[in-house]
Amino acid sequence: MLASLVGFLGDFDKAEEAAQEAFTIAAERWPVSGEPANPGAWLVTTARNRAIDRIRRERTLAEKIHLLPVPEATMDEFDDTVIKDERLELIFTCCHPALPLDGQVALTLRALGGLQTAEIARAFLVSEETMKRRLTRAKTKIKATGIPFAVPAAHLLPERVDAVLAVIYLIYNEGYGGRVDLGAEAIRLGQVLAALMPDEPEVRGLLALMMIHHARRRARFSGEDLVLLEDQDRSLWDTHQIEAGQAVLDKAIALGGRGAYVLQAAIASLQTSEEIDWPQVAELYRRLVELTGSAVVELNRAVALAQAGDPDAGLQAIDRLDLDGYLYFHSARGELLRRLGRDDEARAAYSRALDLATSTPEQRFLTQRLEEF
């Protein structure tokens, strides 16, 4: 709905106001008159008409009203498929190169994924106030520079795809943390992008990565308890989706894919094996570190080294990292210290991780770990 309104109005703030007003009207009317046959169409049409009325009332914008034709179509003509197709245009609007990369990703998460500012701030490991400023700057830049609401021409797509992939991946990560609707939406967007750019291996790499991870989502939790990979009930995995994801990965590799998303998908694929080849996983993480320079990726490589049978090497690698504000740094460090019999240090690491945990499953898992000492 928001994507449709941004495309119609060309303004994020006005689109959000119109959407909120339409939902308010629906909340007042529908309990009395009943839900319309096409709720999505009703909301979009109502929002558009309210936005036009608002612009007409604002004298300073009176000269612009001729640019906003009153929609003559009936509500039934605005179906969900049209609105969903416009989401890809919204992603490319948010991911315009005139915006800084962090602003591109943050704005798309806010506008397309419907995430709250606090949730986006956690994804970026920054304060909520910092994220508010980023979002405001990004919206202002789009409005001031007249960034178009459109999918770029084919020759411009390669230079724009990195930011779009980052957006889709962060949306997926929110879904993987428990918001399954967002995980499925990220996969759908990945499929649309793969159809749009069939010869881009990194697009297929990201799609494969999300599909393989998503196939294991039912096994990641037992009630409110987090279940580690080695303890998961594999009968709960969606084997058909894993095979489909692996087929997408094979196509990415056949296209010459050696980028970050292809490597991550290959790691995810290895982790679906009955006997996981941890040395190979560690090697793929090493290549990923070379590509990204990411301390978080290095943390994953350290864990893989420990899983391969060398917890000392894993702990040494972790202790070289500067990730004090990162939950999984402390939980991974606590696990390796526990395996090495350094219980006092392990307890301290788990306690620090618990201080940083924000979700109930993470808090329960870390509490259980502390109670085992």
Rank of each mutant, 00 (worst) to 15 (best):
R347A: 10
L315V: 08
D324H: 13
R220H: 01
L340T: 09
T140K: 13
H155P: 02
L107Q: 08
D85I: 05
A22S: 09
L157V: 10
A317N: 05
A138T: 10
L99R: 10
G10A: 08
D238A: 06
S273L: 13
L291D: 09
R320I: 02
F124A: 12
R333S: 12
L101P: 06
E58H: 04
A313W: 00
E274N: 04
G293W: 08
L88C: 02
R133S: 12
L354H: 12
T360A: 14
P100Q: 12
A47E: 05
G183C: 04
P148K: 09
F8L: 06
E72Q: 13
C94M: 11
L2W: 01
N38D: 14
T46D: 04
P158D: 08
R352Y: 02
A208H: 01
Q264M: 07
C95S: 13
P100E: 14
E35Y: 02
Q232D: 04
W278A: 00
L206E: 06
K143A: 13
F373I: 10
L226E: 11
L182W: 01
H240V: 13
G223A: 12
G190R: 06
R56V: 11
A252H: 10
A313L: 05
I253S: 04
A41K: 09
D162L: 05
D79T: 08
G325C: 09
D231K: 13
D355Q: 15
D312Q: 14
G293D: 05
A18H: 09
E129A: 15
I168H: 04
L88D: 11
T140M: 11
A302M: 05
A304I: 06
F12V: 15
D231W: 03
V44N: 00
A123H: 11
L189N: 02
L5G: 02
T367M: 14
D322K: 14
A118Y: 09
L327V: 07
Q116R: 15
V167A: 11
D80F: 06
V262M: 01
L206T: 07
A47F: 01
T60M: 07
Y326T: 07
S222K: 13
L299M: 11
S359T: 15
Y285N: 12
F12M: 09
R87A: 06
Q246G: 00
V297H: 03
L356F: 05
S33H: 00
H213N: 15
P201K: 09
S235L: 13
D277K: 03
R364N: 13
G183V: 02
K84N: 07
L99A: 08
G314N: 02
A215E: 09
K251E: 13
E335C: 02
L88P: 01
A138G: 06
I187T: 11
T367R: 15
P69T: 13
E290D: 15
Y350L: 10
G177Q: 14
I142S: 04
E128V: 10
A51V: 06
A62D: 10
A302L: 04
D233A: 11
R217A: 07
E174G: 03
P152H: 06
L229W: 08
L323W: 07
Q363F: 03
A98Q: 12
G309W: 03
R204I: 00
A254P: 00
